[in-house]
Nucleic acid binder design. Structure first.
Lengths: 344, 344
DNA sequence: CTGAAAGCGCTTACAG
DNA sequence: CTGAAAGCGCTTACAG
């Protein structure tokens, strides 16, 4: 027979409420009483019954997960969303539910607003792609003190106040692109243009760093002829690609480090015959797949987006429902290079 | 908000009890009412809340697993037991508990008695090593009709009435020994004596079959000079090994297909210098490990005993607690040959 | 600082 | 054939 709080309460001569408070270090129990309760719990080998906790928690809406992703315009996140939804579905039978909010711009203030709205709705944890901004880090730190934890997915934050991060190793993802470039250049002199996403996303910022560091260290034959930040925006990407094509006749490779690739593709398609830089990109949105079939994109580096959503929610669900902490606070998804032949 | 039975009840205009009965096909609900309830449940997208079920089930002692293993004298089962205990422990927080009973002899009647005792105690499922006897198969079939399922571990039964089997592929385990023998013989003529366990254990029976079939088909150079059934008993094993050593001077390999190896080891140790058959055995009990260090045992074929106990209980626990059926009704543990150098 | 009570969703013994 | 009620173990709002 499993030991229950009731039994501990009887043994110590207090109520079940007091046992609960003591065992969870909640305020309002006399120190000696609390100590005695913990002792007896240990003696009897008390293990909480998760079904009881789960059911009670439900009463207080303790199992709502707020899921916040960034940029609706980036179809990459469709995969992340599928993964997140699948995990919510799977944990539904344990009383977990989720609300998904999509942020259209890299606007930290707006992201905080959304967090507050979800808190209002009763969110007890967040799974989110944080915008790179000190205000976000600060908010996450505050929430932690209130017992509300955050799992970052796809892009991480600077502090360790989050429960876990699920996504590729940012810096490594840049190095993969650089190594690929080196392999393709094979010692020849090549010129590279870089479209680098946004400074508001830690993932792409660190990726760029890894990319540039590797090239500087390893590949004297690879020359970066220009760099732009396209803000992960397809429109901006289109304009910037046009400009690059005009200003630099000698670009061999165009590397797009973040989102907004569709704009770049459009610009390249419109390019009259002549210098066509080879495209290297990240992730497999539909446009990229089609462009790979047409050999416009030579390769794409992938990072398991579905798993990012799935594992992110899974970690939070287990934390909320079962009090289970993740085994590691970093879950790195796999990086791989996909060529057109990989897609059939 | 997740849909509850309460909501369905309101919608249809019946009580929660009736909803429960209808949704689970329990007797005593008018057909039309039951149909209507199922319809509405589907419409609303009802998914049962596992916490509620778990908690209620506990009230009726629905989560007791009876664990029955055979032969205390076989230390192999210590590992199985550790695995089973670990799994019970892990599922304790979901209200699962387990009772372990060890059967000292291959006595089908006694095994059924133990099953009945455990049922008396409220066992709702069994994880067991079944004795090879039609009465056991029959009992398992009966229990199935009453909704009480059995997971067989280590050795299987003939019928498909069990929920799952966890253990090595019996026949294959015999083939591994035969192939090993062929490799060792390397084309030379060799004489082999076989100690074959008991006919009351399907695992060893099929193992013997696989062993003999392979040799007959593949290895004309390997001669079985004698075969005995040691009933998995160390004492009998000791006597039989003595006899074999006396009667056959020309035995190159002694293969022990079941338990009782310690007796064989004792007999070989007592053998004065002279013909020492090389021992090939199954599993890694302490005696075998020590005998391997002394090169008395050349090799042992292993089958992941810990995992057998662990997975067996795990499958039953998920079935009882979460209504989860195993993905496959056979989980084959890995077979491997362990040499003395593998043990350090 | 502590207790009594209610309620989470489910299942079943009991009554009708 | 069906409903009302109790209870599984836990947590918390409320009262004192």
């Amino acid at each position: 027979m499993a030991v229950t709080m009731e039994q501990i309460a009887k043994q110590v001569g207090v109520s079940r409420g007091t046992v609960d408070r003591a065992l969870h270090g909640r305020p309002g129990v006399k120190l000696e009483v609390a100590q005695r309760i913990k002792e007896v719990a240990k003696e009897l080998g008390y293990k909480p019954n998760l079904a009881g906790k789960l059911l009670s928690d439900k009463q207080y809406g303790k199992h709502l997960i707020g899921i916040i992703l960034v940029t609706e315009n980036n179809p990459f996140f469709d995969e992340v969303i599928s993964g997140a939804k699948a995990a919510v579905e799977e944990f539904q039978e344990f009383g977990i539910s989720g609300v998904i909010r999509i942020l259209v711009e890299y606007d930290a203030r707006r992201q905080i607003e959304i967090m507050d709205e979800l808190l209002e709705m009763g969110a007890q944890g967040f799974v989110m792609t944080p915008i790179l901004d000190p205000r976000i880090d600060e908010r996450i730190g505050q929430l932690k003190k209130e017992g509300i934890r955050v799992v970052t997915i796809n892009s991480d934050i600077q502090t360790k106040d989050r429960l876990a991060y699920v996504g590729c190793h940012h810096r490594q993802s840049g190095i993969v692109m650089a190594e690929l470039l080196s392999l393709l250049a094979d010692g020849r002199e090549v010129n590279v243009a870089v479209l680098a996403g946004t400074e508001k996303n830690l993932a792409v910022t660190r990726r760029r760093q890894g990319f540039l560091d590797y090239l500087e260290r390893e590949s004297a034959n690879i020359h970066i002829v220009c760099q732009r930040a396209n803000e992960d925006d397809s429109q901006i990407s289109y304009v910037q690609t046009k400009e690059i094509l005009k200003e630099h006749q000698n670009v061999d490779y165009l590397c797009v480090l973040g989102a907004g690739i569709s704009g770049t593709l459009k610009a390249l398609e419109e390019q009259e015959e002549g210098v066509q830089p080879k495209l290297l990109v990240y992730d497999l949105i539909q446009d990229v797949k089609e462009a790979m079939a047409r050999k416009l994109v030579k390769a794409s580096i992938t990072q398991e987006p579905y798993r990012q959503g799935y594992n992110g929610v899974q970690i939070m669900a287990k934390y909320l429902a079962f009090d289970q902490h993740p085994e590691s606070d970093v879950v790195n998804t796999e990086l791989a290079v996909v060529l057109s032949s990989c897609l059939r």
